[in-house]
Amino acid sequence: MIRVFGCRRFHRLASEREDRQLTSREAKFFETHRSRCADCGLYDTQAHQALDVLRGAAFTEVELTPMFDERVIRKFRAQKVKESLRYWSPALAGAMIACVAIFATLAMVSRPDQLKQANLPGGSASRFHEKSAFPSFELSAMPRFVR
């Protein structure tokens, strides 16, 4: 087989010929080379054939499955809900923690039996608290003029 100078250029032009019109100089080179180089002639035929088959295998029209639009819209709605949940979730989590804390406090306050004994009235925690005597009311102790 005879290798002719310019095969690479021929291959490049063979590809570009699919997309644009070659200049007269390029076209002349192409035809001359093709007639002299058997390899490149075969290459060009094969390249053409392969591209024809490729183009022929293209889907030009596709049948839609029913309800395609509805499915997209439904998913879009679900996506919006998910996004708003994601947006509000930190605030919701904060509010839930606050609620739990409030309930826990209320529960503890409303059940004094579970408090430490020392903290109950009369417990050791009240030892520094001076008990003030309640004033007594005895009529006999009152001065006569008040009575």
Partner: peptide, 17 residues
């Protein structure tokens, strides 16, 4: 695009053959 297309066509041709 031009160079990728050239390479792709060439590889495809070989695979096809």
């Amino acid at each position: 695009v031009r160079s990728r297309l050239h390479t792709a066509r060439e590889r495809f041709r070989k695979l096809w053959i």
